Amino acid sequence: MNLAIINQAGNHRPEELVPSRYAVRIGAIDVLIISDGVLPLPTQMLGHNADPVVRAAWVKDRFLPPDAFDWSLNQVLVRSGKQTVLIDAGLGMDPNLNLPRAGQLLKRLDGAGIDLGAVTDIVLTHMHMDHVGGLIVPGVQERLRPDLRIHVAAAEVKFWESPDFTRVAMPEGFPDALRAAAKRFAEMYSSNLRLFDAEKEVAPGVIAQRTGGHTPGHCIVRIVSGGDRLTFAGDAIFAVGFEHPDWFNGFEHDPEEAARARVRLLKELAETGELLVATHMPFPSVGHVAVDGDAFRFEPTFWDF
C-alpha cells in the first residue's frame, strides 16, 4: 500500500457519496482507516447499567435517534517496511442478521486498489463477528496468501472454545452468531494463527497489546514511528466512553474490567497526546483525548486534504 495508489484510486468516479477511507502517516508508516459500513443497534447497548434518563439525555444532546442508531465499523490497514498489516477484518455477510449496510470492507479495499494477497499479517483485536467475519466470507481465504500470519491473543482463542455470555446485553440472535463466527474462523485459519500472551511487535513499530475486559484476549494496536504515535483501540473505547467511561457496553463480557481498561487507556492517551482510532467511533474516528474534569473529551482532528 502507498498513498499514491490510494490517491489514484480516488480519482475514479465514486460509487458512493460518503467517504469510506482516510489516510494518515505516522512517521514512516502509512495508515489507512477503512469503513466496513454501519451496524444499527439499540441505544441501550451504549450503557445498559446507566440511568435510562441520563442515557436518553446523552443521546438527545447528540441529535441521535432515541431507540437505535448506526454504529460505525472501522478497520485499519498499515504499511510498515515490507509488511502490510490489516487490523481486524470486518463483519462479513451473515444472511441471518439482515445487516446490508455492514460488511463493506472487501469492496472498499478493492476500491482503494488494495489486493488481499498483498496482506502479510492480520491482527485481531478480538474474535467478535464484526472483527473476524470478513475472513469467513466464501472466496476470501483463497485470495489470501498461504503464509499469512494472523496474530491474536492466546487468551482470546481459549475463551472462544467455550465462551461465556452471562454478562452481556446483546440483541437476540447475536450470541449464537458470534459463537458460530468465532468457531468457523478458528477452524478455517488454525494453521495461520500466531498467538501471543501480553504484547507482540507484528511489524516494525506495530505492536499488539492485550487489555482484556471487552473479551479476555481483547487487544489494542500501537503504531509508533519517528516520534509519532497512533493507537487503534478496537472495542476498548466507544463514543459514550469519554464522558461516561463507567457505562457498560452490551458487548462486554467482563464489564467491570472493560471499564477499568478503558479508564487506564484514556488516561494514557490524554497524557501522550497521541492519535486515537477505534472501531465504533464515528468514521474516520481520528482524534485526540483530553481530560475534562472527572471524565474525558474526544477532539476530532481536522480532516487533512
Rank of each mutant, 00 (worst) to 15 (best):
M1H: 11
N2F: 07
L3M: 12
I5R: 14
I5P: 02
I6G: 08
N7Q: 15
H12F: 14
R13V: 15
R13I: 15
R21Q: 11
I26E: 03
I26W: 05
D30N: 15
I33H: 05
D36T: 00
D36W: 04
L41I: 05
P42D: 04
T43N: 08
T43R: 03
L46S: 08
G47F: 07
G47Y: 01
N49W: 12
V53M: 10
R55P: 03
A56S: 15
D61K: 09
R62C: 02
F63K: 14
P65K: 09
D67Q: 14
W71T: 06
S72P: 08
G81V: 06
K82E: 15
V85L: 03
I87Y: 03
A89T: 13
G90H: 05
P100E: 01
G103W: 09
L105F: 06
L105Q: 00
L106H: 11
K107C: 12
A112N: 07
A112W: 05
G113F: 04
L116C: 10
V119Q: 05
V123H: 04
L124I: 02
L124C: 09
H128V: 14
H128P: 03
D130Y: 13
L135R: 02
I136N: 07
G139V: 04
R145T: 00
R149F: 00
A155M: 06
A155Y: 06
F159V: 00
E161R: 14
P163C: 11
T166G: 12
A169P: 06
P171N: 10
F174Q: 01
F174H: 03
A182E: 04
R184I: 11
F185E: 02
A186T: 13
E187D: 14
M188S: 08
S190L: 12
L193D: 03
R194S: 13
L195P: 01
L195S: 07
E201I: 08
V202S: 00
G205A: 11
G205Q: 05
V206W: 00
R210W: 01
G212A: 07
G213Y: 10
H214G: 12
T215I: 09
P216Q: 06
G217T: 01
H218S: 08
C219A: 15
I220T: 09
V221A: 03
I223Q: 04
V224A: 13
G226H: 08
G227K: 02
L230F: 06
D235C: 12
G241I: 02
F242T: 04
P245N: 00
P245W: 01
W247L: 00
E256Q: 14
A261S: 14
L266K: 01
K267F: 09
K267G: 15
L269Q: 07
L269D: 01
V277F: 05
A278G: 13
M281I: 14
M281V: 12
M281T: 12
P284K: 05
A290P: 01
A290I: 00
V291N: 09
F298M: 02
F305E: 14
